[in-house]
């Protein structure tokens, strides 16, 4: 069996799908941790760029959520 045959195998694709969805899920969790950590960081050191950095954190979370749902639809 070649790698090509393996990749055309439905079971192999299912395993790959689970792996990719797991990775996307981890990124969503990571983005949540980043949001929380930015809050703690801004509380420790407050400056004029705090709001901007918080926005970047939220945008990252939204991107990971979008990627997660995109994965659910496409795969």
């Amino acid at each position: 069996m070649t790698i090509k045959d393996l990749l055309n195998n439905q079971l192999a694709l299912l395993i790959l799908k689970i792996f990719f969805m797991f990775a996307l899920g981890l990124f969503v969790i990571f983005a949540g941790i980043v949001i929380r950590q930015i809050q703690l960081m801004v509380r420790t050191l407050n400056g004029s760029l705090g709001a901007w950095i918080k926005s970047v954190g939220w945008i990252f979370l939204l991107l990971t959520l979008f990627a997660f749902f995109l994965g659910l639809i496409i795969l």
């Binding site: 790698i3 090509k4 990719f20 990775a23 990627a67 994965g71 496409i74 795969l75």
Partner: peptide, 13 residues
């Protein structure tokens, strides 16, 4: 050799 949808998600990751 991966299907194109898997390739796309891989690049997103």
């Amino acid at each position: 050799m991966m299907p194109s949808n898997f390739q796309f998600i891989m690049f997103v990751l």
